[in-house]
Each structure stands twice: as C-alpha cells, then as structure tokens.
Amino acid sequence: MSQVNQEITQEISEEREARAVVYNFLSSLFAKEVTSDLVVQLTSAQGQSFLNSLALEPSLTGSIDGIKAKFATLNNEESLLELAADFCGLFLVDGRTSVSPYAGQYVNAKPSENQSEESGSRKKKDRVEIFGELHQKVTEFLTDSKLQVHSDFPEPGDHIAVILAYIAHLCVTAETKEQLNFIKCYLMTWLSDFTQKVNEHDHGLFYCYVADLTLAWLKVDTEFFPNNSRATN
C-alpha cells in the first residue's frame, strides 16, 4: 500500500474508533445508574477533556454542559441515590411516567431500509409485550457478529444500551452502508419518540440531557454517511 493510502486508512480507522467511543459512552449511560466510579472517571482530567471535545460540536454543547453540571453535583451518596431513583422510575419499570428503553415497544418488527419513522412507529394501542420480534432481530444480528448480551445485563436485545453498543461494534467492523442501515432501522425509527418521552417525564433533567445528546449525536454522526442525504427527520 502506498504511503498516502496508508495514511487514509489510518485516518478512517481513527474516525471509526472515535465514533465507537462515543456510542459506547452513550450506551453506558442507558445501561445502568450512574455510579461513583463513573463520576470519578468523568470528572477526571481525561473525562473532562473527552466531554469538552464533544462539546466543540455546537449541536452537542447544550447537552454536554448539562451533563457536566450534573456530574459536578454528584459528590455524595444521597445525590447519587436520587439520580438512581430517576433512572429506576424512567427505565426499570413500565408506566405512564416511565420511558420504555426497548425498541420493540415503539416500532414494528420488520422495518425496511426505506421505511420512514412515521410508518415504522407503533400506535399506542398496539404496544406489545417485551422480548418480542425486535429483540429476536437484534439478537440475530449479535449472533452473526459473534456477540451476545452480557449475562450481567439481563435485558432484551432491543434495549437502547444494546443497540448503541452494537453500533459501536459496527463502527469498527462494518462498512458504512451496513452501519447506516442498522442505525436507521433499529434506532432512528424510535429515538425521537423516546427522547420526547424522556423530556416529558425526567424531572431531574440529567436523562433529558443524555437523551438529547444521543439524538443530536446521531444526527451529527449520520450526516456524513454516503447515500444519506436525509439522515434524520
């Protein structure tokens, strides 16, 4: 390979890695409650550097600032417990003031490449049980990639944390077309709906910032994909 080609390959590889880091970060925030370990990590120099580098993108600045401000207050057990209660009430139970983290509760089982978000979303009346077809679909993707959901995370495959983590994996292993297809079919079809609900129900605001950040990042990330003139709604 020529020097130039090697450099290009190196750069593309770095871009992919960077994207994977962000997707994994977002996944971790939806996977479980904020722990004191995570607070230490994100308030460290490295962590702050990471957040600041994300905040350089204007559409992400607001959310990042919100997250940083929140982390600055998480310096005792009680504040962590209050945030844990927010997380629990939003994502660990089902109800009118909670927000389902499962794709299958928002979209139909067989989203196609060209399916718009509107036609893909499920009417409220049709909401199905969990571990449904979308869980099956995502699990098949994981299996094909020789992956599975960790036993420490006993959740369905269509949990947003799983989907985000899988996208992180695709970032470094798959062609952009494949990445875009998965993102469109398994995340973009419901993320707006999800984010809107989080904004309605999260009084603590932290998860509003996280959901907003996720939606904004998806827009920023997929903007540059080839054959994707309209990456999002």
Partner: peptide
Amino acid sequence: KRRNFLKGILATSFTLASTASVLTPLT
C-alpha cells in the same frame, strides 16, 4: 472539520472500563 472533531475525541484517550460494555463475545 469532522475529521478533526473525531480525532480530538480520540486524542483524549478516554475509555470506559472494559467491564462496562453490555456486549460480550458469543459463548
């Protein structure tokens, strides 16, 4: 601009602990 943005993220060398991922190799 995008390339620099992404490189900037990577340059922070921020990584989560390996135990943090919800995915694991297929057994």
